[in-house]
Design a binder for these strands. Structure first.
Length: 511
RNA sequence: GCGGGUGUAGCUCAGUGGUAGAGCGUCACGUUGCCAACGUGAAUGUCGUCGGUUCGAAUCCGAUCACCCGCUCCA
């Protein structure tokens, strides 16, 4: 019997077993930051390595079965601030917001419009949300009531003031308010983390930013990679690394944190082939998440509606998200990876802002162009969260009900070896087996051993850590050179020759 | 940023003004010898933090921080 998964139980297990700790907790914590413990670090490294192996070292074959070329990159977290001006992040990550003290609603300042009768701009104004018909009609009706006459659309003027001052706001009635003067002045929301470069840096003159995404590091190195690695379009550049966003509300464990890790690949291709590559990567990425264990009903692909497309994707063939049904989004889904056609937006912007030519010359086509980009951008920390959620299982019929059913490739502990009793030659045999397994599998994850306490307790600990196989040395081992293997998921045991342990693991772990 | 909730041992939680608690986990010893077993013992807390009221505060009040839920936000 399995029960519904609870986020609380998972968070508690993660702390108890050393997957994820609240950051700087001994000082009271810090909202939006998390530390990864011994098991969590290994799990995250395994997930990252799996992505790197399947993306850069052994990429899939293309739609026509052709080999694909993807190279790696590790760019600096802090770049020249002009990078973020070119990419649109300085403007786009700075939306000034207006709050309504009365209705508690919050509006983007650039989306508010102000209504007054034609030629009578000095009196009371009524705000509405641009593009929201209901909101407009409400403002029109209230304005009509206020001036005590019927107003049609031809009788009013609409003001578009991105940064309204206090005087104007004082005589404005908010979109959801009944009295004037309830709107606050616009306050900037800075989603980028500012910092200072230089030990004696002046704040304004030396201001730089921690990157809000890894993608731009790839675009600004596009020319370097083209010039130094003999790649030809179509090809990809992949990067894994930390990104930083001053989220308004960090929430839901490690799902939205202010410091997070991304795995992004920018696939550069001919504009005419964008659709084909978009569909290829979209399907490829969904299949990849399945291949590392997200095999259930909780993984899906969702094509974006046209009105939710980001600034660079409007002209493209689309955006699709790989989504996971996290316990806190249930029954809805939350984003895990976005696959977007970024068109040539980024290269074009960097070409304009830097003055450097970023076009390629295509020998086969005899054509010069800016490549289009298909971007599969996954959250490593979100991926880890999905993997944790998927793995977490409660089985009340077992003496140790909590089990982390990690895919063997991701499991932080690959195997454990126990002497059934801590005497009679068993610890020595177990220790020798541990050394053999470390030599063979140690580079993929931990090989644990434990001689203390009852065997059931040791099995239970390994279940919570998600170790797929436990080998136990017992009295028989001394006589006939066999050990028992216990399977994490079934609890079933079989006896195999101690000589066969490596080949058994190799086969079961796929390593 | 707003509203609601929560904060006591590693985890789950009890404790409504008068000596800081339980279960589980952890550790040690013994026993047992394949599923959180049994026995004995041990360690672990500025009761989130700071301030106030009080003879006395985990408990009442205020502020603050963190987490959870709902808004809002989320290239």
């Amino acid at each position: 019997m399995t029960q519904a998964k609870s986020m609380e139980d998972l968070v508690s297990l993660c702390k108890r077993r050393g997957f994820v700790y609240p950051a700087s907790e001994i000082y009271g914590g810090l909202n939006g930051f998390w530390d990864y413990g011994p098991l969590g670090t290994q799990l995250k490294n395994n997930l990252r390595d799996a992505w790197w192996q399947d993306m850069v070292l052994c990429p899939p074959t293309g739609p026509g079965g052709q080999p694909l070329q993807i190279v790696g990159l590790d760019s600096a977290i802090i770049q020249n601030p002009r990078v973020w001006e070119a990419s649109g992040h300085v403007a786009g990550f700075n939306d000034p917001m207006i709050d309504c003290r009365q209705s508690k609603a919050r509006y983007r300042a650039d989306q508010l419009r102000y209504l007054h009768p034609t030629g009578e701009g000095e009196g009371r104004l009524f705000a509405f949300i641009e593009g929201d018909e209901k909101s407009f009609e409400r403002a029109l009706k209230l304005l009509g009531k206020y001036v005590k006459r019927d107003l049609g659309r031809g009788d009013v003027e609409i003001l578009d003031i991105p940064e309204p001052d206090a005087e104007l706001l004082a005589r404005t009635v908010g979109p959801d308010a009944t009295e004037p003067g309830t709107l606050t002045e616009p306050r900037p929301f800075n989603l980028m983390f500012p910092t200072i470069v230089g030990a004696t840096g002046d704040w304004e003159e030396n201001k730089a930013y921690l990157r809000p995404e890894t993608a731009q590091g790839i675009f600004i190195n596009f020319k370097h990679v083209m010039d130094t690695t003999r790649v030809k379009v179509p090809f990809g550049i992949a990067q894994v690394g930390k990104s930083f966003r001053n989220e308004v509300t960090p929430r839901n464990f490690i799902f939205r944190s202010r410091e997070f890790e991304q795995m992004e690949m920018e696939w550069f291709c001919h504009p005419g082939e964008a659709r084909e590559w978009f569909e290829f990567w979209r399907d490829q990425r969904l299949a990849w998440w399945k291949s590392i264990g997200l095999t259930g009903e909780d993984l899906r692909l969702r094509q974006h509606e046209s009105d939710e497309l980001s600034h660079y994707a409007k002209e493209g063939v689309g955006t699709a998200d790989v989504e996971y049904r996290y316990p806190f989004t249930h029954p809805d889904f939350g984003e895990l990876e976005g696959v977007a056609h970024r068109t040539d937006f980024d290269l074009r912007m960097h070409q304009e802002h830097s003055g450097q030519k970023l076009e390629v010359f295509d020998q086969e086509r005899r054509e010069r162009y800016l490549p289009h980009v298909i971007e599969p951008a996954a959250g490593l920390t979100r991926g880890m969260l999905a993997v944790l959620c998927e793995a977490y299982t409660r089985d009340e019929s077992r003496p140790s009900p909590e089990i982390m059913r990690f895919h063997p490739r991701l499991a932080p502990i690959k195997a454990a070896v126990f002497p059934l009793v801590n005497k009679e030659g068993m610890p020595e045999i177990a220790e020798r087996l541990v050394q053999r397994l470390r030599a063979r599998f140690g580079r993929f994850g931990m090989i644990e051993t434990d001689a203390k306490q009852s065997i059931g307790k040791r099995y239970a600990r390994m279940d919570e850590a998600g170790c797929p196989f436990c080998f136990t040395v017992d009295g028989e081992t001394v006589k006939d050179q066999t050990v028992t293997v216990r399977d994490r998921d079934t609890g079933a045991q079989e006896r195999i020759a101690i000589e066969r342990v490596e080949s058994f693991l190799s086969e079961r772990l796929g390593l």
